[in-house]
């Protein structure tokens, strides 16, 4: 199968993820969308790795996974504590940083 198709798939996934981040309010869903985007990137990396015939992309994909895992830990903790204090997981409610 032509590896370029994987790139199309990755682009599609990334777009879905990006739209989700922009459109959805629920922090958990936004979070999942971010994961989707990360995985789209991973797919791209692996695909290119295959296309170019070296392992750099695949190694980088592992790194991404590790970072994503760490991010999930921190991010979920923030979301949980936010939910505890505000009884809502909407990102729009947490807009206190503006002046």
């Amino acid at each position: 199968m032509n590896p370029v198709n994987y790139l199309y798939l990755a682009a599609l996934l990334f777009t879905i993820g990006a739209s989700g981040v922009l459109i959805r309010r629920n922090a958990i869903v936004v979070f999942m969308c971010i994961e989707l985007m990360l995985n789209a990137c991973n797919l791209t990396l692996v695909t290119f790795s295959r296309m170019h015939g070296n392992l750099d992309g695949q190694i980088l994909a592992f790194f991404t996974m590790v970072v994503a895992a760490a991010e999930v830990v921190v991010g979920l903790a923030i979301i949980v504590s936010l939910f505890r204090s505000r009884h809502s997981a909407s990102v729009d409610d947490a807009s206190l940083m503006k002046l």
Partner: peptide
Amino acid sequence: RKLQNGYARTYAVSMF
């Protein structure tokens, strides 16, 4: 300053 409205989404848009 008005651009900094505190919505994560707005920042994401500008990033994208």
